[in-house]
Amino acid sequence: MIIAMAITGDQETIVPIIEGETIRLYDTETEHVSDFENPANNLTTGKRSAVIKWANSKGVKVLCSPPSMLCELSYDLARQEQFQYYRVKAHTSFSALQSLIKENGLELVAALPPNEIEPSVIAPANQ
């Protein structure tokens, strides 16, 4: 199974999509890692949805999800595309995620709790 996550910093911390410089794809069976520039990096709006669309185009259907990973609009898009989630605590490192997966310490879920979804902010139209 391939999992997508946003990564930042030397400690390779898993962060919400819009905070990570890198999107990492991790194959849990082979432990192969592929890093890509975050497609949200150069956007001003629709950042989270852009990452969902990008991951979907790569055939990924599982997201590693710390709190505030998605907003209402991107979560709706992810649900339409039938993504599933590994929920992790804030500031979880990639190495800790690998250990949790090996130890079966994470549950794959089809939905995120409402308190972990950010409100969508839609920029007002130019007047």
Rank of each mutant, 00 (worst) to 15 (best):
127 Q>H: 11
82 Q>Y: 02
100 L>A: 05
80 Q>K: 11
5 M>G: 02
90 A>Y: 09
89 K>T: 06
21 E>T: 14
76 D>W: 07
22 T>M: 09
66 P>T: 04
120 S>I: 15
47 K>P: 05
100 L>W: 06
42 N>K: 08
60 V>D: 03
114 P>I: 11
23 I>Y: 01
84 Q>T: 01
59 G>P: 00
84 Q>N: 02
18 I>F: 10
89 K>I: 12
83 F>P: 05
127 Q>Y: 10
118 E>N: 12
87 R>D: 05
58 K>L: 04
17 I>T: 13
74 S>H: 07
118 E>C: 14
63 L>A: 01
63 L>Q: 00
47 K>L: 06
120 S>G: 14
28 T>W: 03
87 R>G: 00
88 V>L: 02
1 M>G: 12
24 R>I: 02
63 L>R: 03
91 H>L: 15
75 Y>V: 05
102 K>G: 02
49 S>K: 11
52 I>E: 02
70 L>A: 11
29 E>Q: 15
84 Q>G: 03
117 I>M: 09
16 P>G: 08
115 N>D: 10
71 C>F: 06
11 Q>I: 01
106 L>V: 05
126 N>H: 14
94 F>W: 03
114 P>H: 02
94 F>T: 08
35 D>Y: 10
103 E>S: 08
46 G>R: 03
63 L>G: 00
24 R>F: 01
20 G>Q: 07
9 G>C: 03
